[in-house]
Nucleic acid binder design. Structure first.
Length: 562
RNA sequence: GCCUCCAUAGUCUAGCGGUUAGGACGCCGCCCUCUCACGGCGGAAUCAGGGGUUCGAGUCCCCUUGGGGGUACCA
């Protein structure tokens, strides 16, 4: 068999040589140790939490080392492609502030374009490049065509469909046999000519020379040293439409784009033997690999399952709608990626996460469970670290999108809103009232008359005479010039006058001497003013509301008693 | 079935041959306190099981078990 001739027959239109491609995409001129990483999603949906996990790793690795982080769209499967998915993917990544140095991008006109010298960055646009290497492999006898008639092709596609329906059963020997017959290493140039002349399509398969009884050593940067059996499967390089499979595209692209570190999910681990073989056949040096553990969820039987598309928390676009600040999610991601991040964060509350000394060594080997409680905690801390101004701005843009009524209130009186959001903010131990923007409304609604839905149950159940006395006397007692101490002293004296203990200690020691304590008096005031039994410091609340609103609220409470 | 990865409390983890097994989230209690939040203190809860190796094992090796992933002309 003349492989050279076969290659020419199979790829008559390919005239470029691998050497020319090498010259066109030369090794990058980067400082020693600079890493080139990439995010390479297929445009079949939204950015997944697990994908984002990989994005963060790739981005940090590249930019911490002075390297390049690029975006490649792996659109080799037209059947599964979702229209507009690529654009939305890019937009989501932008929303999260992820900075790509090169790769697919959204242009001025809203369509996808390429940015950078190592493109095209969409695999569907790289067919001619793959074919150069396909031809080379054929001419060296390392790959061969397998022709399928239309009927056979149909059978294959039907089998595919069956698999999609999850009736996959690999114990079926017949199924295996059927696939076996589809590949045929023994053929002549004549038969190839005949098939081509008949217009039959072919897939290009690799001619595997591996022995599965032998093991290859593979060093993964997080998983460590692995032993995997050599590949003996003549896997498909080029599908019948001439588009490469993942394996082939991976080898060609990551070589030509000069990727130094491949970060991908551990579902690729079993394919490593294939990739080792491919890189060897092609004469490429292998990049380093980081196979990341998957993010899991619990199924109804209590088993862990990969967090998949439909699961809560999977879609990176959903967090905004739920009100999580984007940086809360990235912070949470960082805590999952490097376990010492939290400690660092505690010591460096005002630094950007990009200043964190991220390390591959600190990455987890096993898959973790997505934990909403933890995300909420991280988010509360994240918001607590913001200034009132920041919180206001962020809240404003969030409500503009999701809660117009609240937005108008916030927007109408900016200073009032900032004053409210300033309560307990700043200092060493800030309040952690909200983890999401969506919680804010309910939390501070009592400050706004139109949102005020008081619950006076407490007042109705308390000693009526006391309540009336507090409500009628307090407004005359109040002086906006008082500081917190003076304010509280006045409250204590009122308590005392009404037969309530001014000091908690006093009350606790001799409860029988009093009708109650200053706490009861304070609660009456709180409920009257806020319409609820739980609120931030009443002094602060009244100070921000001002005398006018105080008077109104007290009057409203009084009215409710009759 | 075969291949492969993983295994410290409910969750995320520290540990890298000698530790009272450390921290965070969640949970419970107490304190602080005008309530809540914050904070402080304390508590319940962990080395999957079994064999080795070693003076000594959470840590190294093997087996078992459990769980994940893969086994496509999908990525």
């Amino acid at each position: 068999m003349d492989n050279k001739k076969l290659a020419d027959r199979l790829f008559p239109k390919v005239h470029m040589t691998p050497e020319e491609l090498e010259a066109k995409f030369p090794p990058r001129k980067l400082p020693e140790g600079a890493k080139v990483t990439r995010f390479a999603p297929s445009p079949t949906g939204f950015v997944h939490f697990g994908g984002m996990y990989q994005v963060m790793i790739g981005e940090r690795l590249a930019h911490l080392s002075g390297g390049i982080f690029y975006l490649r769209i792996e659109d080799t499967d037209s059947k599964r492609e979702v229209s507009d998915a690529a654009r939305r993917l890019i937009q989501t990544l932008r929303d999260y502030g992820i900075n790509f140095d090169e790769g697919a991008d959204i242009g001025e006109d809203g369509t996808i374009c390429d940015k950078g010298e190592y493109g095209p960055y969409r695999q569907s646009l790289r067919a001619n490049i793959y074919h150069v290497y396909a031809k080379k492999l054929v001419s060296e006898g390392k790959a061969y065509p397998v022709f399928t008639s239309d009927e056979e092709l149909e059978a294959v596609l039907a089998a595919d469909k069956k698999e999609e329906n999850k009736t996959k059963d690999w114990e079926s020997e017949a199924e295996k046999q059927r696939l076996e017959t589809l590949k045929n290493r023994n053929f002549t140039l004549d038969t190839v000519e005949k098939e081509l002349a008949a217009g039959h399509k072919f897939v290009l398969r690799i001619l595997a020379d591996g022995d599965p009884n032998k093991k290859t050593i593979f060093d993964d940067l997080v998983k460590g040293r692995l032993e995997i059996p050599e590949n003996d499967e003549d896997f498909v390089l080029l599908k019948s439409d001439g588009i490469p499979t993942y394996h082939f595209a991976h080898a060609v692209d990551d070589h030509l784009m000069r990727t130094t570190h491949v970060i991908r999910g551990e579902e690729w681990l079993p394919s490593i033997a294939k990739h080792i073989m491919l890189f060897r056949y092609l004469g490429f040096r292998m990049p380093k690999y980081i196979h990341t553990a998957q993010i899991m969820r619990l199924d109804e039987n209590g088993n862990r399952k990969k967090l998949s598309k439909r699961d809560l928390g999977a879609n990176m676009d959903d967090y905004d709608e739920k009100g999580y600040p984007r940086e809360s999610v990235t912070e949470y991601l960082m805590t999952l990626i490097n376990s010492n991040f939290e400690e660092w964060r505690a010591q460096n509350p005002s630094k950007l996460y990009t200043e964190f000394p991220f390390s591959i060594k600190k990455m987890s080997v096993s898959g973790c469970l997505f934990d909403y409680d933890k995300l909420m905690d991280v988010s509360k801390n994240t918001i607590a670290r913001m200034s009132a101004r920041q919180v206001y701005d962020r809240l404003l843009s969030w409500t503009k999108k999701y809660d117009t009524e609240f937005y108008i209130l916030l927007n109408d009186n900016e200073q009032y809103a900032i004053d409210i959001l300033s309560i307990g903010r700043g200092g060493k131990k800030p309040r952690k009232d909200f983890g999401t923007w969506s919680e804010v409304r309910n939390n501070i609604s009592f400050f706004y008359d139109t949102l005020f839905t008081p619950d006076y149950e407490y007042l109705k159940n308390a000693d009526k005479q006391t309540v009336l006395s507090v409500l009628s006397e307090y407004p005359t007692l109040y002086d906006e010039r008082d500081d917190q101490n003076e304010w509280f002293t006045k409250l204590k004296s009122l308590a005392s006058k009404l037969g309530y203990a001014p000091e908690m200690k006093e009350y606790k020691e001799n409860p029988e001497n009093f009708k109650g304590s200053v706490a009861d008096i304070a609660m009456i005031l709180r409920v009257a003013v806020t319409g609820r039994q739980q609120s931030p410091d009443t002094f602060e609340v009244i100070r921000i509301m001002g005398r006018e609103k105080l008077t109104k609220r007290v009057a409203l409470a009084q009215k409710s008693l009759f």
